[in-house]
Design a protein around this nucleic acid. Structure first.
Lengths: 199, 199
DNA sequence: GACAGAAACGGACTGCAGTCCGTATTGTCG
DNA sequence: CGACAATACGGACTGCAGTCCGTTTCTGTC
């Protein structure tokens, strides 16, 4: 994933045709992913369905994982807003431990609800997903909560916790091992709580 | 990754030419990976260097991640033997907590020492790595130790712990965040200890 | 040692991710 | 409005992963 224009410093303004195509692509991708499953849809398919050249697709979204990430963007933003400025226990106001618990539940639910698309967004090669803006945000959020709770090595533990919430891992628990979302959530919440305590 | 003949029930005996080619391929792959880095070596390269057809490569190793896994096999087996029948604290004889600590250190060292090859072996699509024989073994080992220590949800926590020790994650900590192996080991050992305690 | 069936070989082939660059569109400034 | 620079477009092109199947090599048997 390369930098999206949206993210650079001074808003460079999106050209009209660019906007038009961005929307066409997102609509087509959502529709196709939904209808045929993320895995079996090729970038050519998306380009064709959107009535757009392949180059356009790649210039804007970088690669297939970037396209998936863009599709997730809106819902992801909702979760981010809830956690940064929403009501407790997810938002500020509750004790760190409870906020962490709420976050694990909410994030897990988010991943579970969009398993395939999240999985695709996490396939960026060479660990690019770990350098993603949104990943950084989740990690930092967890690290701050852990630090607040007096946990040692909050940064490492934040990364470790997120690693356990990877789409691939969640899919394994949910589908290969047939765990219910509720049980899995409870188990992971318990573990997060345990990991919050000092060694 | 599909089943390797090696793993099936009754030994179906490997044909002489098959052995010959297997060794040629492994030698060529090791040499190429070593010289040019795993990422930039194509399967055609390996086939050509080994003096073998591409079909042979794929029939035997399934895909690129399978080839990487085969290369790791020997060292992986050493670690497995040490942990199953070797001297404490890695092997049996020490208390579960200490064995877990030793395992985290040893496994992390293993991943770190072969980062690129392990990373490649873990790229199997659709979470195939989680269904791998060796992954199952690591997971079961951890789960047993955790259960022995009275930890709740030992299976989930074992999976979570291994998720944190993924090559991609370790590479991020080691290279992107420049952590020393020693510090990282300590932090993860502390976390494993914390996660061993009840909620 | 020669035969038959089984097992393995190898390289042409397919389909897709991702790149490149000549062309078209847009926004701006005089 | 007209023309210029910046930006975006699109589809041909490249290279690689993974498949397929006609051909070759092996091995157990007589």
């Amino acid at each position: 994933m390369t930098e999206l224009p949206l993210l650079s410093g001074g808003a460079p303004k999106e050209r009209a045709d660019a906007t038009r195509n961005r929307l066409k692509v997102l609509a087509a991708a959502e529709q196709l992913f939904d209808a045929r499953g993320v895995a079996t849809v090729s970038m050519d398919d998306v380009a064709a369905a959107a009535g757009v050249g392949k180059g356009t697709l790649y210039r804007r979204f970088g690669d297939k994982s970037g396209l998936a990430a863009a599709l997730l963007d809106e819902r992801e933003s909702q979760l981010q807003a809830a956690m940064l400025t929403g009501p407790p226990p997810l938002g500020p106001g509750a004790p760190a431990g409870e906020r962490l618990t709420a976050f694990v539940g909410a994030y897990l639910a988010f991943v579970d609800a969009h398993l395939d698309v999240v999985a695709m967004s996490q396939t960026a090669s060479s660990g690019a997903r770990l350098r993603t803006g949104s990943h950084r945000l989740w990690r930092q959020h967890i690290a701050i909560l852990l630090a607040e709770a007096g946990t040692p090595d909050p940064d490492v533990r934040a990364g470790a916790l997120l690693a356990a919430l990877t789409a691939e891992q969640v899919r394994h628990w949910r589908h290969d091992e047939d765990r219910s979302l509720a049980d899995l959530t409870e188990a992971l919440v318990r573990m997060a709580r345990a990991a919050t305590g000092p060694p």
